[in-house]
Simulated scan of single mutants.
Amino acid sequence: MMIRIKHWAARAQHQAFGLRDFERLDVTRGALTVVSDDGEDCNLRFAELLGRSGVAGCFAVADDFIGRPGFLSYSHLRELQQAGHEIAFHGRKSVAFDIFHDAEVLRSDIEAGLNRLRSEGLVVSNLVYRWGTSTRSARRLLAPLCSSACVPWSGLNERVTNRYALRRIAFGAYTGRSSHTQEWFFNVVESAAKGQAWPILMLHPGAAGHTAEHDAMLRKILQHARHAGLPVRTLSDQLAALGVGAPTAIAAAQPIGSSDTRKASRA
């Protein structure tokens, strides 16, 4: 219940104040993106499903869980990256960003996590909020560090959207009352194929709510996207198609945390 209240408050704040320049993203090309959260080792099987469908996905991992029993190792993540998949940052531990009342502490925590992933040879430029927490102050802080960030707020990213609060559609687990039929997803794909819409699917393959039936449905959705002419892209590939590059610190392949990065986040 508390998480739902936080999500509602964050959405209300977002709607009340509107977009700032650094948040604005013009969606001029349609695409479909598949993002799998939490980095459990069942994602190896899920990556095979995507590979057989001829597409790449995005796998969001929390660095403190990498290598633990039941979770992906750094070797696994490098293999996924080499296969064309994207690795995104899912925070550290199981901690929501809004527990940090000091911006410097939150920034240091995010920088440490991103740098840890990069030190293992991973290219990471996008973030998926832990527990879905997204506030205006957090988005301002993240802007110099990441190209984009995903929230669990249900909906499409259409025409003009917030690149640091990209909406997702729950698929399989954690759908609540928003569980959709295969036909509904087919309609979303067809609408996005006409342009100016970017649906991002939010998956948790390791959760009890995600079943083999959902895997079968996803294969059909991906096949339908191909027939409809809708490209299936990672977060970074779609951002590149929309003319968005990686933050300077990431593009330069240098550890995050420079004084220039900190100054930018305060601007």
Rank of each mutant, 00 (worst) to 15 (best):
A10F: 13
L32P: 04
G57V: 14
V35Q: 07
D64N: 00
R11Y: 07
D41M: 03
S148C: 14
R130A: 14
Y164C: 00
H214Y: 13
L166V: 03
L222N: 02
I169L: 13
E40R: 09
R140D: 05
G39R: 08
A88D: 12
R4L: 15
E40Q: 14
V128K: 00
A173T: 03
V232H: 06
D21G: 09
S75V: 05
F97E: 07
A197V: 05
A143T: 12
R68T: 11
A112W: 02
I99Y: 13
S125Y: 01
T181I: 11
A112F: 09
R167A: 10
I3H: 07
A240D: 11
G206W: 01
G176C: 04
H90S: 01
Q15S: 03
S265D: 13
T234A: 04
N187S: 14
T234W: 08
P199G: 15
F171S: 13
G91D: 08
I99W: 11
G172C: 14
D260R: 11
L49R: 11
T135I: 07
F59S: 06
L230N: 14
D41Q: 07
G39D: 05
F65H: 11
M2C: 04
L242W: 10
A10C: 13
L145T: 08
R139N: 09
L201N: 07
A228E: 00
W153Q: 00
E183F: 02
C146R: 10
L235T: 04
R52M: 12
T261N: 01
M1K: 14
S179I: 06
I99G: 02
A208G: 06
P231A: 09
